[in-house]
Write a protein that binds this DNA or RNA. Structure first.
Length: 105
DNA sequence: GCCGTGACGATTC
DNA sequence: CGAATCGCCACGG
């Protein structure tokens, strides 16, 4: 089958299920897939996600609420802007308020 | 089957 | 809080 056999598709599937105005963490997705330690692999799937897949990867953040690198999404601040547009709030550190928007599959 | 890689996680300083 | 370190897992070569 394709190079993207299972894990990647699972990650994308879960990420696509994240409701608008909410965010999830790589660890949460990895946990949902049955591999709580595969958080890195989840992040890798996001980076390997095909452009134009409409995958809301901007709704996926790490456990600390920090967003993806500035060079991601094609520009710095893009991720935060998108989340803010969806109603997501940030703290003084520019991190997502997981206490309010954390969503787990 | 080993090595290198990586948009992570948790711990420690 | 910020930076550094170790450990984890899956994919490609």
């Amino acid at each position: 089958m394709r190079t993207t056999d299972n894990f990647f598709e699972r990650v994308w599937a879960v990420a696509a299920k994240v409701p608008r105005g909410k965010v999830t963490t790589y660890g949460a997705i990895a946990r949902a897939l049955g591999s709580p330690g595969a958080a890195r692999t989840v992040g890798w799937a996001m980076r390997a996600a095909p452009a134009g897949s409409q995958l809301p990867c901007h709704r996926v953040v790490n456990a600390t609420g920090a967003l993806s690198p500035d060079d991601a999404f094609g520009g710095a601040g893009i991720q935060q802007s998108l989340l803010e547009s969806e109603g997501v709030t940030f703290d003084a550190q520019g991190r997502v308020d997981l206490k309010r928007h954390l969503w787990i599959p």
